[in-house]
């Protein structure tokens, strides 16, 4: 029974850790499918995390924090769009600029507003997204296997986890079954085809990066007001890049990307449980090396040991009408 509890709690952590990663990866999905490089996920998430925590700390409302996070991250998206869509700048450089600005600005503002050396105050329970117990969780618990699975792993998360869960099939539906999805996929493959069909390429791409900002805002708010209880300097710690790696791994499709996020989250959840534990045959692995596990995993996966992924053809190239 101990083993089962251990596994259930591992899966429970996996779900918690996967949610922000998947929200960010989905943000990357909309951006890159439209042909705009999403290396800016890290900065947008960080901006969202800070905006959410700062607003929640002041107002005491997690929802207002979420709203602020979405606005902050969408503003970052607009900046990325301005540089890479309107001015056809180098999208990689633009994204790195956004990540750098977010890193500096969140630290400066946090310090100036709260005087806590770059963090926000700890949030009270009301200013955070609390856990929700799904209907019948306790009633079903006695059922063998499925009962505890439902009660421990599926139930008992905050609302943002369920939003992320709903967004997965919804995004797949949008991408493949809606007009917007058709145009989104087209503009990332061949913007000239979209343009000659009488559809504005910049408008479509701006819509995509704004959706990307919206989702990054939720992901950021998740980090600081659902998973954590406040903002800490550079609290994303590379999660934006991990999300992008998950998107690549998922071959730019929503559901496989979800699977990749779950894999990363599983490694992360396992990682915290391995600390201080003697692994048979190896002994106790140093904590620093265990912490590097998700990053090493990312490098290995990106190196194509799971098959080469083909990105949207127009990603990273500004659209210039050219004859």
């Amino acid at each position: 029974m101990d083993g089962l509890i251990w596994i259930l709690s591992l899966l429970d952590s996996m779900v918690r850790l996967a949610a922000p990663l998947f929200l960010a990866a989905l943000a990357g999905f909309y951006s890159e499918r439209a042909g705009v490089i999403a290396l800016d996920l890290e900065g947008k998430m960080l901006a969202g995390a800070f905006a959410a925590a700062a607003t929640a700390a002041v107002t005491g409302s997690a929802w207002l924090g979420l709203g602020a996070a979405v606005i902050a991250a969408m503003a970052m998206s607009l900046l990325h769009g301005f540089a890479s869509i309107t001015h056809r700048g180098d999208q990689v450089v633009s994204a790195v600029a956004i990540n750098t600005i977010a890193l500096g600005l969140t630290a400066v503002l946090a310090n100036a507003w709260f005087g806590l050396g770059g963090r926000t105050p700890n949030l009270e329970a009301g200013a955070r997204f609390g856990e929700i117990t799904l209907p019948l969780a306790e009633t079903l618990r006695p059922l063998p296997l499925l009962g505890p699975l439902y009660a421990e792993v599926i139930s008992g998360h905050n609302i943002l986890v369920y939003i992320a869960a709903v967004l997965a099939p919804l995004s797949a539906w949008i991408a493949y079954r809606s007009r917007f999805g058709l145009r989104l996929r087209a503009v990332g493959e061949n913007p000239a085809a979209v343009d000659t069909a009488g559809i504005s390429v910049p408008a479509l791409r701006y819509q995509a990066v704004l959706i990307s900002g919206f989702l990054c805002g939720i992901a950021g708010a998740y980090l600081s007001t659902a998973q954590g209880a406040g903002f800490q300097q550079n609290m994303t710690a590379g999660k934006g890049y991990l999300a992008l790696a998950a998107l690549i791994l998922g071959k730019w499709r929503p559901l496989p990307t979800l699977a990749a996020c779950l894999l990363f989250a599983f490694a992360d959840a396992l990682q915290t449980r391995l600390q201080g534990v003697a692994v048979p045959g190896i002994g106790e692995v140093p904590v620093q090396l265990i912490e590097a596990l998700p990053y090493v995993l990312t490098v290995l996966l990106l190196a194509g040991f799971v098959g080469r992924a083909v990105p949207p053809k127009a990603v990273g190239t500004p659209y210039v009408k050219d004859r």
């Binding site: 540089a83 450089v93 633009s94 790195v96 600029a97 400066v108 770059g118 300097q233």
Partner: peptide, 19 residues
């Protein structure tokens, strides 16, 4: 805070690089 310099860095990357 000294991170103001990081903001300036970011803005320079934006203007000198991407824009």
């Amino acid at each position: 805070s000294p991170e103001l310099v990081v903001v300036i860095q970011g803005v320079v990357i934006l203007f000198a690089g991407a824009l």
